[in-house]
Structure formats: structure tokens, C-alpha cells
Design a protein around this nucleic acid. Structure first.
Lengths: 340, 340
DNA sequence: TATTAACACGAAACCGTTTTCGTAATATTT
DNA sequence: AAATATTACGAAAACGGTTTCGTGTTAATA
């Protein structure tokens, strides 16, 4: 067992002062080549590495980014996270993750924990409960303390900070338009409770596409499902009650559940019913037929969020940059569940 | 903008010394009730919170755990991570994640970065490349420095530390035995390159079950697939060449790919061919028929790993506890892809 | 040779805490 | 009244670095 060596240890051993050691290791010309070499050799031999915590305290920056996401066993969030981690790492930052588990309280507690010096900035996606309560005081307080925040995907207008979002409305409109172009008129939307801003936008896109093409909106063609249950029964009834030609689902789970039901009911995909889902995850790629889906480019989103955060943290704030909202363009990947 | 307040600020404002403030906030009886109350009121009003970094430096412990995983867009690893995060958080620890991306170098670099004071201990699962190279000097060095490590799932005998593993061999044997009990004799194994200890164990379990039941081993019934590609062609050939009654796949992706191919070839699942996969992920649950699968209980595994690490970090080391290897019992979930 | 410049290094402050120890000012005991 | 105990606080060291500034010793210049 050989514990980490410190500047003090080196100084004592080599009979010089701590400052001399510090300078020598930074190759300061202030120190003679002789002692510099001696010190560097010694440090190398004992594998000296400066203590990050001491550096953080001194520099008043941790080079840590706090990431708060509602869930981690979740394709989209993990891809975003991967983007964040990659970019951050490359820029010399580490990432501390907390999972809010869709809970307001956990989101608040975690952020406050990290805010006391552990991180230099946050990247987060709002929890479901936070969106429902519409309470963002915790975010505002941190911003007020000078801690930068970047919101992604599940954002809110109520907080003034940098944001990265998906063009949900547009891609949804594009998807529905694709259905229409291929001859569908009876187009369903399967969605979640609309306290999620993203579900809301997707619905708007759906409505917009109908309107663009003078297709009357039929309330009955919208199915709102509870989260993460087995919705087979509800979906089956939905398809039995309504004559549907195409379905847009706001996530890939709903989409594959739909596919199962549809095939069970004896309809052909995509000939009789077409399907498009959101999230180009593992389910979409390994279903049969393969699911046409909206790729959200989570990795790109994460990378951009990290870049925006780091940029803001590292620019000397002579003049405060205005907050930006960047939009990631989703793309519709056409596979076997649609007529292309 | 009101930046964080420090002890020094409070001291100056209230015209007492820093030590007095510190003591008062810790409710030290050394300070008179009067000044104590004054200081606490002031601190509360200004929402004083001690700086984590300063505490870390002082206490020489960060209350951070470093987690290194090969991939994050991955069901098993995320479930483990969730278990770690939950337990750690509950115990007042935060989690810093780095992704090794299956690369030896990234694993080494990330660990060295974090080891310089940023974390108190590691939880990790070895990268593919590390397992291939069989080089664990980075782990050994950190252990030597007194940094505790817990290895999970992808572990190695070569490193002396705490470990959490799955009973891969046993559950594999149980799965194949289940096939045999239901009348199958021609049982295939679809696996990955065997530098993964887990694949190796699963193969051993497969062989053991055959032997248990006096079924001769047929080399041709083992298919080794490259990672993460579209293996449809290889799988199709495999099933055309061999008359197979049941398949054990070492992950759920291979399993659903198999199911597709099998159905494509016109076989009925499970009547003509049964399938069992590993990882009770989203694919298994939403495939049709639903996939019978080995649940690895990742969350439990993560929780246990975190518990082992924190236990080791927090126990006063009068006598060093011997290293333990805990085994998580996987369970076979029987669903539609097997005769049950 | 006297003056100045360059060199090579150390002391000390600082980042924000905690904690030990010392000490005035009271309060208590003899 | 003198000796002792208690109270209430502050100074300072420590955690492990960086950085500014001061200074003694040589080397270069006038």
C-alpha cells in the first residue's frame, strides 16, 4: 500500500519548498533546470498527480457537470447522456448523474446537493412531476446564484436559460403528412398525458398536418395512454372501435404494442395500417416489420447541450451572452411499418 | 445574482470569528445560546450551505463514487447503474459515471482521472478490450493506493477485490435443462466471442446440462456471432443447415433476431422451436411471442455492489475484511417463446 | 569597484471548512 | 480575598494545491 504523494512530500524529500516543487512541475523558468529535472524525475517516479479536490478549491471550479435525468433505463435519455459524457470528457469534464425518477422532490434535493460546490453547471431534463406542478423555483435560485443550466427536451418557457429541444411539432407534422401522401386519411395519434411539453408539441404537429390537408379532426382518433403499463386491452378496443389507416405513436413502446395488436387483429402492416413511432431505439430496429420511426438524435442533443454549457462556463463574462434555444432536427426513418 | 455565502462572510457580517460561526452552526455548546441563535438565523436567512469541496478536502473523502461501465445505451448496465445510484444517493453519495466504450485506454484514463481525489471508490464492469488484453495493472495500482474497487458482472480472477457476479453457469444450465425436460434434444447456443467471462460461463452451463442428460455435444450447434451487427444472414444459414429444436441466446438481441429468422423460415414458436434469451429487457417484453428470458436483476446487483463498496469505505479498518464475491441469482422468466 | 540586473528560490496568502488549543472574563469555591 | 473552575470565544493549523511577492546570491554593466 503506497498512498498518494503530495507536493509537501516531494518538498520534504528533496529539501526544497513546496512552491519550488509546484513551479518546477509546471516547468516554470523561475526554477533552475537542475532542480526542475530533479523534482520532475522524483515526481514521475512516485507517479505524482495533483489532487483534484485541492485544485477545485483553489480554482473555484470543479470541472464537473451535474446531469439530472428523469430515468436512466430509457433509450432516449441514455443516448443524450452518452453525447454529454463524450463531449464533456473530451473537454476535461466529468459528469455526475442523478436520477430524479420523475419526482419533483428528488430533482430539487439532488440539485441542491450538487450545487454546493460539487459541480460547475447543470444539464437537465425536467421530471414529469416538475412539469405538472409548474414549479421552477429551484432552477431559478440556482441560476440566480450564478450556476449555469442547460435544459434539454423537457424544457419550460418559465426559466431563462439555455435550452436544446427537438422540432417535435415539425417532425410530427412531417410524419402525418407522409401518411397522408401515401393515401391515409383516418390517422390516429397515440399519446401520453399532455403535461409533457413534448407530447403537446407532437399533438400540435399532428393537428397541423391534418389542417394542412383539409382533413377534419376526429377526437376519437386520439388515444391517451397511461405510462408504462400493459395497454393491450385499451389499444385493442381502440382499433376495434375505429377504422384506422395509420397511427403516429409518441414513443416506440406504444408503437410496438400497437403493431402486436394490429397483427393480432389480422391487419397487414403497412398495407392496411401504417405506423410511425418516436425514438429510434432497439425496439424499432428489431421489431418485425421494422418500425418506421422518428430519430431524435439524442447523442447530438447531448453533445450540443454539453457544448452550450461548457461554452457558457468558460467564456469570460465581460458581456453576458443572451440565452439561446437550439433546435435539433429529428428525422423520419422510413422502414417496414410504412408505405414508402 | 447573489453568490453563495461562506463562513467568512457570516463571520464578518456578525463580527465574530470564523470558528465561532462554524461551531454555532454545528450547535456546539461552546458557543452561547445567544450568539448561536443569531448566527443560525443569519445563516438560514442567507441559505448558507457548507461548500462540498472544502469539506472533501478537509475530510479527505468526497462522498463520490466512480462508476465505469462499457456502455450506457444498454439495458443491463443501466439497470445496474440505477441500483447503484439509488443506494448511493440514499447513503449520501453521488455518482460520477465514465463510459469506457469497451476500450482499454478509456477505462485506464477515466479511472486515473477520477482517482486523483475525485472519488472514494470505484464500481466497474470491465471493458471488452480489457478482458481481451488481460491487463489489470490499472486496477491493481489503484487498489494498492488504498482505493477500494467493486467489480460487477464482467470480472476477473486476477484482481483481488470485492465482486458481484451472476450465477451464469447455473442459470444457463437450468435454462437448457428446461428445454430438455420439455422434450428438446437438438439444442443450439448462440453466443459471442468468448473473451467475455460471462459468455464463457454460459457456455459451460450449456455443456453441463447436456452432459447431465447424456446428450452428446454437437459442435455445429454453437453459433458465434460478432457483436452488434445485423446477423440475419448468419442466423438464417445456421437454422437452415441444422435441425434445431431449441436455442439459448446469450443476449436478447440475438434472441429476437433468432425469432424473426425462425418465423421467417416458417417455424412455429415455441411448438417447433423454443427460445430463451439473456437480459429481461424491453425487447423481451414487447416481442411476439414474448420472449422467455433470464432476468439478471441488474438493479439488485447494482445495489449490492454499492453496498459492498460503501461498507468497505466506511468501516474503520482495524482489521481489513477479506474480499468477498457475492452471487446474484438470476431467474428464468418463462414466457411465450418456450413450452412451459 | 560600485551599481544594477538576472537568477533561483522561499514565505505567505488564499480557496472554505473543521478542530484543537489558548485565554480573557466571569463565576464559583474555599 | 485568593484560588480555581467555567464560559465564550478567537487564533491557528490543517487538508493540497497555486501564485504573488520578497530576497539573497551571483552575473553583467557602468
Amino acid at each position: 500500500m503506497k498512498p498518494k504523494i503530495t507536493l509537501k512530500d516531494i518538498a520534504k524529500e528533496l529539501d526544497v519548498s513546496i512552491s519550488t516543487v509546484s513551479k518546477a512541475l509546471k516547468n516554470s523558468k523561475e526554477i533552475s533546470k537542475d532542480t526542475r529535472d530533479r523534482i520532475k524525475a522524483f515526481a514521475k517516479f512516485y507517479n505524482y498527480r495533483p489532487n483534484n479536490i485541492a485544485l477545485s478549491l483553489k480554482n473555484r471550479r470543479t470541472k464537473n457537470i451535474g446531469v439530472i435525468i428523469p430515468d436512466i433505463v430509457h433509450h432516449f435519455f441514455t443516448t443524450v447522456f452518452r453525447g454529454i459524457e463524450m463531449y464533456a470528457n473530451q473537454m476535461g469534464y466529468n459528469v455526475i448523474v442523478c436520477i430524479s425518477d420523475e419526482s419533483f422532490d428528488k430533482e430539487v434535493i439532488n440539485m441542491e446537493m450538487l450545487a454546493n460546490g460539487s459541480i460547475d453547471g447543470f444539464i437537465l431534463s425536467l421530471s414529469a412531476e416538475t412539469q405538472r406542478k409548474n414549479d421552477f423555483t429551484h432552477l431559478k435560485e440556482l441560476l440566480d446564484q450564478g450556476i449555469p443550466i442547460v435544459l434539454f427536451d423537457r424544457v419550460t418557457q418559465d426559466v431563462a436559460c439555455d435550452k436544446v429541444i427537438l422540432n417535435d411539432l415539425e417532425i410530427s407534422r412531417e410524419s402525418v403528412t407522409h401518411f397522408i401522401k401515401k393515401g391515409s386519411k383516418k390517422i390516429a395519434l397515440i399519446t401520453t398525458e399532455n403535461y409533457f411539453n413534448v407530447s403537446e408539441s407532437r399533438k400540435e404537429g399532428y393537428l397541423a398536418a391534418l389542417k394542412d390537408n383539409n382533413i377534419p379532426f376526429d377526437e376519437n382518433l386520439i388515444l391517451t395512454l397511461p405510462h408504462d403499463l400493459d395497454n393491450t386491452k385499451l389499444i385493442t378496443e381502440f382499433f376495434q372501435k375505429n377504422k384506422i389507416e395509420a397511427v403516429l405513436c409518441v414513443n416506440e413502446i406504444f408503437a410496438v404494442q400497437c403493431m402486436s395488436v394490429i397483427q393480432q387483429l389480422g391487419f397487414k402492416i403497412p398495407d392496411e395500417i401504417s405506423i410511425i413511432g418516436f425514438t429510434d431505439g432497439i425496439l424499432s430496429r428489431y421489431s418485425s416489420p421494422k418500425l418506421s420511426t422518428v430519430a431524435q438524435h439524442g447523442e447530438k442533443m447531448g453533445e450540443l447541450a454539453a457544448k452550450m454549457l461548457i461554452d457558457r462556463m468558460e467564456t469570460t463574462k465581460v458581456v453576458e451572452e443572451p440565452f439561446r434555444t437550439e433546435v435539433i432536427n429529428a428525422t423520419l426513418i422510413k422502414r417496414g411499418s410504412t408505405i414508402n
